[in-house]
């Protein structure tokens, strides 16, 4: 009873076991990464939602990636003024 000398069943089960093991491991890894917050960036490395205002738009993060100026520049404002000045090394020191 139960003995399967051809070994076919055991091969199939071995594959299923491998799949199950990989899924479990992957699951734990995904949860671990998500818990630590690895793989997501803080908003400063994204273009920030600049508060606008007459002072012009600059990237406010201390890390300061290349700022082309913020978006959120309302259509009424001429696009030229804030944008051109920004990329040339006006990194805010913090």
């Amino acid at each position: 009873m139960f003995v399967d000398n051809s070994g076919r069943r055991s091969k199939l089960l071995r594959r299923i076991g491998l799949l199950a093991g990989v899924l479990c491991l992957g699951y734990a890894v995904v949860l671990g990464l998500a818990f630590m917050g690895i793989g997501t960036a803080t908003p400063s490395s994204l273009l920030p939602f600049a508060g606008g205002g007459p002072a012009g738009v600059r990237n406010s993060g201390p890390r300061g990636t290349e700022p082309p100026g913020g978006f959120g520049t309302p259509p009424a404002r001429p696009t030229g003024t804030p944008l051109t000045g920004a990329p040339t090394g006006t990194r805010p020191s913090s």
């Binding site: 490395s45 273009l47 990636t65 290349e66 700022p67 082309p68 100026g69 978006f71 959120g72 520049t73 309302p74 259509p75 696009t79 944008l83 990329p87």
Partner: peptide, 13 residues
């Protein structure tokens, strides 16, 4: 209204 205008200087990070 106010979509991003890259102005050719999208951050390259």
């Amino acid at each position: 209204a106010a979509a991003l205008r890259p102005g050719g200087s999208v951050p390259n990070g």
